[in-house]
Design a protein around this nucleic acid. Sequence first.
DNA 1: ATAGCTGCAAATGCTTTGCAAGGCC
DNA 2: GGCCTTGCAAAGCATTTGCAGCTAT
Lengths: 139, 139
Amino acid sequence: MGKASRDSSKAIARLRGVGLRPTRQRVELASLLFKGPDRHVTAENLHEEVAGLGLKISLATVYNTLHQFTHAGLLRQVIVDAARGYFDTNTGDHQHFFLEAEGTLIDIPGEDIRVAGVPAPPAGMTVDRVDVVVRVKRA
Amino acid sequence: MGKASRDSSKAIARLRGVGLRPTRQRVELASLLFKGPDRHVTAENLHEEVAGLGLKISLATVYNTLHQFTHAGLLRQVIVDAARGYFDTNTGDHQHFFLEAEGTLIDIPGEDIRVAGVPAPPAGMTVDRVDVVVRVKRA
DNA sequence: ATAGCTGCAAATGCTTTGCAAGGCC
DNA sequence: GGCCTTGCAAAGCATTTGCAGCTAT
């Protein structure tokens, strides 16, 4: 069994697991996203990669699929840049370095970072999540 | 001397201080932004406020002016929402609570919060700023 | 006088949506 | 077959820009 078909099988299983029909487009995107180490992608960025591989998936479908994956808990959205939406295949507890200049994200393991001294949220509110973005520049 | 003209004088002085010509639009916006306690505004939001006061400033000029103020160090941009750009009159060291539901920002004093365990940035990079966003929801 | 600003409207860039055709179960 | 998906193109939003006319110094 080839690597590509093994990736597909895993992708199909993963999609079924979250109740999404394994359509060609979803399987191809899931294979790309989850076959290797964690990655950070933008819709545009992923669409180009897909096109470069000779696969045909419309940009609209890439957007829709990324959101479906996000709602299904397969991806997480990261807000670091007003202009672009980033999606992260690492859905666990962690934070990010962000290189504005090149639009690159780098994970910081959740165990490494500690945030202390967060005041009590306003009355009637609960903390949903604490996001830390370490913006870095070329020295 | 009335309150409005006192605000204007202060605004004019502040603009001159950062090398910006005190045009009518800049003076009016600076007066609104800096006459009271710290605030968080969006361009749209500020433009409506201005219109509500009977002042005439185009939305394009509000955008341009907010960016000029930001470059001059009078404002700071806060990135918490993919859909909107927020500007903060508090340019000092501090962080934010963010209520996604209503798009509201609340300051967290910089002395309160401590972030520890940030790994060394990638080679050739230096930390520019560490942003912490505490996302809260209605309990 | 003149360099700098403003306003409008058009352009941009990313993202979403409506709807007909196609694919999965 | 029936319902869910896709793809395209058009619409949507927030934001930016080009340029002619206006303004502060």
